[in-house]
Structures are given as C-alpha cells and as structure tokens.
C-alpha cells in the first residue's frame, strides 16, 4: 500500500506528466517521462526518495515491465515505479545520472532481459560477451532446461 503522504504528493509532482498513473501500491509512468519522475521524487523535499534499492524487469509476453524500488531514508517511505516498454523495442532511458547505484543493475537487466538502457555504455555483466540471447526472456530455451 502506498503511504498516504506519498499518494497525496504524487499528483502534485506528476502534473506535467500525463503518463503517470497512481495505482493501489505502485505508480506507472511512460518511458519518456521516467527520468523526470525519478528526479522529481528524489529532489522533492517532502518525499526525498534518495535511495534506489532495486531495479529489475519482467518479460510479460507482450511487453516488458521495468520496475524501480525506491526508498526515502529520511521518511522511511517506499515506492515502486513501473514502466512498460514494448518487447520488440525495449529501449528505456538510463537513470544512472540520478541514481548511480543503477549502473550494475541496469547492466544486469540488459544482460538477462535485453532491455536497452539509453544514454550509457552497456556491456554484459554476468554472461560472457559472446552469449547469444537473453535468458530471462520467456521464449529463451536451452538444452537441458525443464520446459
């Protein structure tokens, strides 16, 4: 559940962001407005989401959802920001400039799901450079797999 203060403040921050949707326990935003939203959440003195704790993505078949879990160390708030991107055009702006901790997590998400984070150098991090495909995509199969 969203904290009341966070839920109350979000529409104010999102006035200029038509793609922002406040849901029961998360917010979703379009990829073009994602960096602006995260920057606003981080810099807003009433929310101060200064810590990106987790960044990952899920292949939902028709689209990929990238999720950002934010924490405010000052107020203790938590917030999940989701961003849907098309599966055949998996581009999303990098948020490394806002949260430096996104660096390795973006690389990991690129490595395993093929999400292209734009505006930064991307290299595989867990798999070797010559690996073909993105294993956490649902259509990935491999010899010896259970499916």
């Amino acid at each position: 559940m969203l904290d009341e203060k966070v839920a109350g403040r979000l529409p104010v921050l999102g006035e200029s962001m038509p793609s922002l949707e406040v849901k029961e326990n998360a917010v979703t935003v379009g990829r073009d407005e994602l960096p602006a939203l995260l920057r606003a959440l981080k810099e807003d003195p009433e929310l101060a989401f200064n810590y990106l704790t987790n960044l990952t993505a899920t292949d939902l078949g028709d689209r990929i959802t990238v999720v950002y879990h934010l924490v405010s160390f000052i107020y203790g708030y938590q917030l999940t920001v989701g961003c849907d991107i098309p599966r055949d055009d998996p581009r999303i702006p990098s948020v490394m400039e806002i949260y430096r901790g996104a660096d390795w997590q973006e690389r990991e998400t690129y490595d395993l799901l093929g999400v292209i984070f734009e505006g930064r150098d991307l290299a595989r991090i867990l798999l070797h450079d010559g690996f073909e495909g993105y294993p956490l995509r649902k259509d990935f199969t491999w010899a010896g797999g259970r499916d």
Partner: peptide, 9 residues
C-alpha cells in the same frame, strides 16, 4: 552521500 547514491547497504 556516495554510499547512498551507489545504493550501498
């Protein structure tokens, strides 16, 4: 500041 920015824990 760096520790928080880099998501250290």
């Amino acid at each position: 500041e760096t520790a928080i920015n880099y998501s250290a824990s």
